[in-house]
Simulated scan of single mutants.
Amino acid sequence: MRDIASPGRRGILALGAVVVLAACNPAAKSTDGAKVRTDLEPLERRFAALGALSGAHWLGTALGADSRMSVPGPTDVRVVGTARLGAGAVAAITGAPHRSFRRETPRRIPGELAEFMPDGARWVRGESFDSDMTRGTYSGAFYLDAGTDTVYFDTTNPSVSAGSGP
């Protein structure tokens, strides 16, 4: 007779499957220990439509690179962080009549960036603005706070904007 406290064969198999799936899931990758960057040039080349940036704090991390089961090949890179836009830039972007924004708080903020998020930010996000920024060449979300003229970006494989050089 089987012990009631024992997880049994199915329980052990299910637990093993959960562990394997978590190890293979790029979203489960932690960025703990990643170095926060403050250089502007890579961001300005990729997000040229935002104009001149300042006060940037961002991470560029390879997704899935820590999995022992990953298949060799191209690596997706998550570029996530904050930067200040010029004075009044966010109000100009969000006030454009052809765009629609709604209140939305960023999710999945890496711990290394938490201290650089503006206090009391009233984030807004617009899908049409995201689409204008990415031009359909990569995935990304852009959150804007008019009170601090700050953008929070969370992108995967952001490409260099046309006309910004190699």
Rank of each mutant, 00 (worst) to 15 (best):
G136D: 09
V71A: 12
V151Y: 00
G51N: 08
Y138D: 04
R68T: 13
L113P: 06
A28V: 14
L53E: 06
D76M: 06
G33A: 05
P42V: 07
D39P: 04
G86V: 10
T75G: 05
Y152N: 01
G147V: 02
G136A: 06
P118R: 03
G120P: 03
D32S: 13
L113K: 07
R102P: 02
L53P: 04
A89C: 09
W123C: 03
L85E: 03
Y152R: 00
R125S: 09
T150D: 04
D119N: 11
R125N: 12
E41A: 13
A28Q: 12
L144A: 04
A22C: 11
D130P: 07
R135A: 15
F47E: 04
T38K: 09
F47K: 03
L85V: 06
R122E: 15
R78C: 02
R45W: 01
A146M: 04
R45Q: 13
T94L: 08
R108V: 10
E41K: 14
T134Q: 02
R45F: 02
L59G: 09
I109R: 07
P74T: 14
V124L: 08
S100I: 14
F47C: 03
S139W: 11
A89F: 06
S30M: 05
S67K: 08
T134P: 01
F116H: 12
V36Q: 05
A114W: 11
T137Q: 14
T61V: 15
W58A: 01
G140H: 01
Y143N: 00
F129W: 14
R125V: 13
F47D: 03
C24A: 14
C24S: 11
S128V: 10
V18I: 13
T75I: 14
R135M: 14
A91R: 14
R84N: 15
W58L: 01
T82H: 09
R45L: 05
R102F: 11
E41S: 15
R46C: 01
T61D: 12
G136P: 04
Y143F: 15
E112G: 04
A121I: 06
G33I: 06
V151L: 00
E115D: 13
E115S: 15
T94Y: 03
F129P: 02
L63T: 02
L21Y: 10
T94K: 10
G51A: 07
S100W: 12
R46H: 04
A22W: 13
A22I: 11
G60H: 09
F47Q: 05
G140V: 01
P42R: 07
V18A: 15
A121L: 08
